[in-house]
């Protein structure tokens, strides 16, 4: 087991280093740099060169990369070209915004998905179930950004019921304001997610309901509601929880388009802006965060998987 663990951690580190180099190479391949952006269209050649020197962009690419790695190893992810804040600080401000939006979106999705999924599984022929099927079909096909536009037209621009743009307000400090400023983007991401979750829940629940043990429980004279909640739901919940997890995981990577449409200050929009401005350290730090989250989850999964299934670690 320890040999396998070593190998997997080794692989994890290799991908991490590769990712770091790849991201660096990627942002360096972009034509133009932060000095071009900062100095502006009316600057002269020597001024751009001076800005480049001030930002440290005149050093060879490899040296810049190694300097960054040296900092990163000691926990310093470098500094944005556009603010006095360190990259770690910038990320620490954006990540909570993205996490809050992702969690809110997922909660909404569950609020929709659980009743719908249960209904479809238990009363598949009822009118409500048919309507729910319609919702699933539409929700899966409608791109989230189109839904976002429709929401902006109807609820913000036309009726002024809600702000057309999103913003991050800490939920624990101002719950009402937080909801007000993130409910539209949250709905935009929630609808699609709710359809996927409802689909899974309905399928697994209806499958569980046909199993023998449900019949046994029923035969014992247990009330139907108790059968569903205590026995069937519990068994059907596992696969659903997994899907919720995967959804949440991808939302945490930042939803670039939705965040841009709502001007929501999350990780996705940060990366989008930073790519445009050639803010190398921020792009590097942000993408690495996303990559590390992904890799760590994968690594944990693989390790636990191996722990549960000996054949893998012996292979």
């Amino acid at each position: 087991m320890s040999a396998y663990l070593l190998r997997r951690v080794g692989q994890f580190l290799v991908v991490l280093v590769l990712a770091s180099i790849a991201v660096w190479a990627m942002v360096y391949a972009l034509p133009g740099d932060a000095a071009t952006v900062l100095a502006g269209p009316d600057a002269s050649g020597p001024q751009i060169a001076a800005t480049r020197a001030r930002l440290g962009l005149d050093k060879p690419v490899v040296v810049q990369y190694l300097l960054w790695v040296k900092g990163a190893v000691t926990g310093h992810l470098g500094q944005s070209f556009y603010s006095a804040d360190s990259v770690s600080h910038t990320l620490a401000e954006r990540i909570p915004a993205t996490v809050q939006l992702a969690v809110l979106g997922m909660l909404l999705a569950l609020l929709i998905a659980i009743p719908i999924g249960t209904l479809i599984a238990l009363r598949p022929r009822s009118l409500l179930a048919r309507l729910s099927h319609g919702y699933l079909t539409a929700g899966l096909a409608i791109p989230s950004f189109w839904l976002a536009l429709l929401l902006i037209i109807t609820l913000a621009v036309r009726t002024h019921a809600l702000p057309a743009t999103g913003d991050y307000v800490n939920f624990w400090q101002h719950p009402v304001a937080a909801l007000r400023w993130s409910i539209l983007p949250a709905i935009a991401v929630a609808v699609h997610g709710s359809c996927i979750i409802a689909r899974f829940l309905a399928t697994s629940l209806s499958e569980v309901m046909q199993r023998d043990f449900i019949r046994t429980v029923r035969a014992k004279g247990v009330r139907e509601s108790r059968v569903v909640i205590r026995h069937a739901m519990r068994n059907a919940a596992l696969p659903t929880v997994t899907v919720v997890g995967i959804q949440l995981g991808s939302l945490l990577g930042g939803t670039v388009v939705i965040e841009a449409l709502f001007n929501y200050p999350g990780l996705g929009r940060l990366l989008y802006t930073s790519i445009g401005q050639r803010d190398y350290a921020v792009v590097q730090g942000g993408v690495l965060f996303v990559v590390v989250v992904f890799l760590v989850l994968n690594l944990l999964v693989d390790l636990l998987y191996a722990y549960l299934d000996p054949r893998i670690r012996l292979a």
Binding site: Q11, V14, V15, L18, A19, A22, V23, M26, V27, A29, L30, P31, S250, G253, G254, V256, V257, G268, L271, Y272, I275, G276, V287, V290, V291, F294, L295, N298
Partner: peptide
Amino acid sequence: DSVSMRFVDLLLAVPTVLLALVITAV
């Protein structure tokens, strides 16, 4: 297998839209 799968891991870890953003900028 190891080399190509690490490459694949790498691509998988970077969100599609970001990758597309950078590639179209280049």
